[in-house]
């Protein structure tokens, strides 16, 4: 168990390191003049010179990367003689345009994305697994065909389309709900939920389709396995067979998929945020691209990447816990 965790932690850290190298190379080494991208739109010559100095673009590449990595692990100072900007660990970069560390900008928006992701996950799990199980058990009926149609349609709808249409109908014409604007959970739980209801539903409808399909096919596959025949041959009831034996095997891949999807969403739900006008990590990224604020762009990319790598490790761990054949060796 400990050995498994150690090995997994080791490989996770390696992947993170590789990710940081790739991100560095793509965003700082490849562009013609990264300092200009850091300085942003409407940057004058004086400011550009300062930024260039602070970044140390005249240093060899590996030294620049080392500073970048050092910043991540132990913090760094952007030093231009008398003008020193400090960025404490873990330093995901410093936005000279807004004059604040990138990590702070991200964490300020994390509660929103976490609320969005977790709430939506609850809804899509209920919808997706429920529908998938029903479809697998009632094979060949009208219900199954309808469900197949709905899930295919759901998969064909990008989240911004669903969100847009839901908002059009629920807020615009029917006026059931106010136009969403984020209210923190700690401030007013009821307002938090009612404002997030539509974003949750839009995200969940899109995701649930994939989960329903996966649950259905996994359950059908498990139900066709020999050990299910054994259970039948030994007089076990259908309920016990499905709930006790078939569903467990069928849901193992679903759990790992969930870990991955949550990890992805915590790095920002760009489209959902954009549709509902939420100021989350995804929105921050898009805005930073438009204003050309490179440190923020890089910081978010790295942050989202780390979340996915960690989610990957968690998914593997869950898989090993759920399936005795994989085991924690």
């Amino acid at each position: 168990m400990i050995r498994f965790l150690l090995r997994r932690a080791f490989s996770t850290l390696t992947v993170m390191l590789v990710l940081s190298v790739v991100v560095y190379l793509v965003f700082y080494a490849a562009p013609h003049d990264p300092a200009r991208l850091v300085c942003g739109k409407g940057c004058d010559g004086v400011r550009l010179a300062v930024v260039r100095h602070k970044l140390g673009t005249d240093l060899p590449l590996w030294q620049q990367y080392w500073q970048f990595l050092h910043g991540l692990l132990a913090g760094r100072d952007f030093d231009a003689g008398t003008d020193v900007t400090h960025c404490s660990a873990p330093c995901f970069g410093y936005s000279f345009q807004t004059d604040q560390p990138v990590l702070g900008m991200i964490t300020a928006r994390l509660p929103l994305d976490a609320s969005l992701a977790v709430g939506a996950a609850v809804v899509w799990l209920l919808l997706g697994i429920g529908a998938g199980v029903l479809a697998a058990l009632r094979r060949g009926g009208i219900g199954e065909r309808a469900l197949t149609g709905v899930t295919l349609a759901g998969m064909a709808m990008p989240v911004f389309l669903v969100g847009l249409l839901l908002m059009m109908v629920c807020c615009g014409y029917l006026q059931w709900l106010p136009f969403p604007s984020y209210v923190p959970l700690t401030q007013d739980p009821l307002a938090w939920a009612s404002n997030l209801a539509l974003p949750w539903l839009s995200l969940a409808l899109v995701m649930a389709a994939a989960y329903a399909r996966m649950t259905r096919s996994a359950l059908l596959e498990t139900l066709a396995e020999d050990h299910i025949r054994t259970a039948r041959a030994y007089g076990l009831g259908e309920r016990r067979i499905v709930l006790g034996h078939a569903l467990r095997g069928a849901l193992t891949p679903v759990i790992t998929l969930l870990a991955m999807d949550l990890g992805g969403l915590l790095g920002g739900a760009q489209l959902t945020e954009s549709v509902f006008g939420f100021d989350g990590i995804g929105r921050l990224l898009v805005e930073s691209v438009n204003t050309i604020d490179l440190p923020v762009v890089v910081g978010i990319t790295l942050f989202a990447g780390f979340f996915i790598v960690i989610a990957n490790a968690v998914a593997d761990l869950l898989y090993a816990l759920a399936d005795p054949r994989v085991g924690l060796q």
Partner: peptide, 21 residues
């Protein structure tokens, strides 16, 4: 009531015939 209690069955491939979980 009959299956497993009064008549039981043994299958060819014992690995796939048992629930791996």
């Amino acid at each position: 009531l009959l299956r497993g209690a009064r008549a039981a069955m043994v299958f060819q491939d014992p690995l796939s015939a048992l629930d791996p979980y």
